[in-house]
Design a protein around this nucleic acid. Structure first.
Lengths: 140, 140
DNA sequence: ATAAACCTTGTAGTCGACTATAGAGTCAAG
DNA sequence: CTTGACTCTATAGTCGACTACAAGGTTTAT
């Protein structure tokens, strides 16, 4: 017995994307069906589910499909690269992620200031105008 | 005396984007020149510098120009909305940012595992193949 | 056994975010 | 006073990431 094989539509439904998007990702080399049945239908295992979720997660935080392909290549055939390369690449990518987190935190801070400055009542928000002085002026 | 007025090219250089991009952002209502000199040239104050940096920061973490416009609208004429609205909007946006941070941390974790699994030597990385078992299997 | 609901490939169209080009005016240096 | 580096507007082209057909084959439900 094998763990739940999914057809394209089921995979699509499970992840909230369209069938076309999945085929598009396949054409870009991001996600291949583990096998095709005799009628040509694509069949996916739960690894594909994980992989696709990884893709979507990475997309939401601003990685391009090309960058995501790189990340995935690293995961799936790390044997094509030396350990040294993998070490360097992951190191770099982690730093990149740390900057993204820092940038998100900066934006979050602006919003938090705005949020706190705001009385929350139903009057116009013009009273809460500490506003413009936001955005860290001392960065990069 | 006023604080450093910048022409478009200087603003572009300072932020690493092209003049065209700045004009494009203006056409989208993201960034307007504080004034035009008699010859029609755009002139920007340091607020524009901050504003543009905010735009780029938000872009890097996956916000669309439309979303960024919304964020900026909030900052600049909060008087157009009630406090209540602002409170709700910022609350929502902060949650969205928190998910993005969580997603980044998940990706970072995958990379960290990969990084640690890897010996770092110059041999092929096929030894470091704890690889595929990455990606949290238990998260939406 | 026929219709509805799937799947296939292939090609074309869309949308967001630029990017480049044309044709013009302005300004600072030699 | 002209050459080179800037600026302007306006329009067209590009690129990434889909999205929507078209034209067909398959499977399932009645």
């Amino acid at each position: 017995m094998k763990t739940a094989s999914l057809k394209i539509g089921q995979l699509a439904k499970a992840t909230g994307v369209s069938n076309e998007t999945i085929r598009f990702y396949e054409s870009k080399g991001l996600l291949t069906a583990s096998e095709r049945s005799s009628n040509g239908y694509r069949h996916y295992g739960s690894d594909a589910l994980q992989r696709l979720r990884f893709i979507l997660r990475a997309k939401r935080v601003g990685f391009s499909l090309d960058e995501i392909a790189e990340l995935l290549a690293l995961r799936t055939h790390a044997d094509a690269h030396t350990c040294e390369e993998v070490k360097h690449y992951t190191q770099n990518k982690m730093q990149q992620i740390d900057s993204k987190i820092a940038e998100l935190q900066a934006i979050r801070q602006s919003l938090a200031t705005l949020h706190q400055a705001c009385c929350g009542g139903s009057e116009s928000a013009e009273h809460c105008s500490i506003l413009n002085a936001l955005d860290d002026p001392n960065h990069e």
